[in-house]
């Protein structure tokens, strides 16, 4: 299993401070426990094909969760990542399959749609001062509706677009699907953004004390827009990866993904109140979600019960996190 390799590598660049490391250890420990449990419970679980399946299942939600982490760091929330991702898929389909634009243009177009969704979210939150919950709830509905309208409620297939399926499905590194590679590269970028750039610093700063940040001379409204746009780029990336993996844009998908992404973020130890966020935690959180679903399926536990299990894990993870925080701050 590559988990240890992939988590230690980005740690040096991403983590800052002992507290974050501790937090990630806890989430990481949880992941290990779940892994060990399923490997004992099922002989098929540790098959590379199965592990690859887990990683693939992690990739799309994981990429969305990366952007969501930035927004949640500000104390906001982004409910539009799921259907927004779908709209980006559909628009990529329009650009590539319907309009026949070059591959690069179509992919960048998909990302741009994501950025546009983020821009509108950001403007609504920062300048109209809508609560993020409301602004992104509205966007969630708008994006879902637009996906259906634009696609005429039918899937758009990329069968005629040469090379598009290879974007996520190919294996640049032998054995590792590109979708997973893209996820890990995106995670490193998100980690650097969070801990080393003004965007990330001001996201944490706004989440920690918005008024103080403003008084300190930071243009909070402008930076909020920037943060939502960056989050939107991750939504766009998720949309492109999703479309490539399915080799089609499915306009009916997407609803509910946002909650999985948010769950990954909070399981990873990012505080919904803002100010404290960790990308490595989000990566682990997304892996926990996917591993759990996969393992339960392998054990032939009905899908309905899988949901119950995931819900319980969310409660346990966040409560454990609060216990530790309570002693610190």
């Amino acid at each position: 299993m590559t988990t240890s390799g992939t988590t230690t590598a980005p740690r040096r660049t991403i983590s800052f401070g002992n507290r974050q490391q501790l937090q990630q250890l806890l989430a990481f420990g949880g992941l290990v426990v779940i892994f060990v449990f399923f490997s004992v419970a099922s002989p098929y679980f540790l098959d590379w094909a199965n592990v690859k399946g887990i990683l693939l299942a992690t990739a799309v939600t994981g990429i969305m969760a990366l952007g969501a982490t930035l927004v949640i760091a500000t104390g906001g929330i982004d409910l539009s990542v799921g259907t927004g991702m779908t709209l980006c898929s559909v628009m990529t389909g329009v650009f590539l399959a319907n309009l026949g634009l070059p591959l690069v243009v179509g992919v960048l177009g998909g990302l741009a749609i994501g950025a546009l969704i983020g821009l509108l979210n950001g403007l609504n939150v920062a300048y109209l001062r809508l609560p993020p919950f409301i602004a992104t709830l509205a966007m969630m509905m708008v994006a879902q509706g637009l996906s259906l309208v634009i696609s005429g409620t039918k899937p758009i297939y990329f069968s005629d677009v040469a090379g598009f399926g290879q974007l996520a499905g190919g294996e640049l590194l032998p054995g590792l699907p590109n979708a997973v590679l893209i996820f890990f590269v995106a995670a490193v970028l998100a980690g650097v953004t969070l801990s080393k750039t003004l965007t990330g610093r001001y996201a944490l700063s706004i989440g920690s004390n918005e008024e103080a940040t403003a008084i300190s001379g930071v243009d909070v409204r402008r930076w909020k827009v920037v943060i939502y746009v960056v989050a939107g780029l991750f939504t766009g990336l998720a949309g492109v990866v999703m479309a490539s993996r399915l080799n089609s844009a499915q306009p009916g998908l997407g609803l509910g993904y946002e909650l999985e992404a948010i769950a990954a973020v909070v399981i990873g130890g990012t505080s919904l109140r803002g100010g404290k966020a960790t990308i490595l935690g989000t990566v682990i959180g997304a892996l926990i979600m996917a591993t759990l679903t996969n393992g339960l399926r392998i054990m032939s536990i009905p899908q309905e019960w899988q949901k119950v299990a995931v819900g319980i894990v969310i409660v346990l993870a966040v409560y454990a996190d609060m216990l530790r925080r309570g002693k610190e701050a």
Partner: peptide, 14 residues
């Protein structure tokens, strides 16, 4: 007007 989650130095030079 401080950001409790940031360090002392990060606060001063925000």
């Amino acid at each position: 007007h401080l950001m409790p989650d940031l360090t002392v130095a990060q606060n001063i030079f925000i």
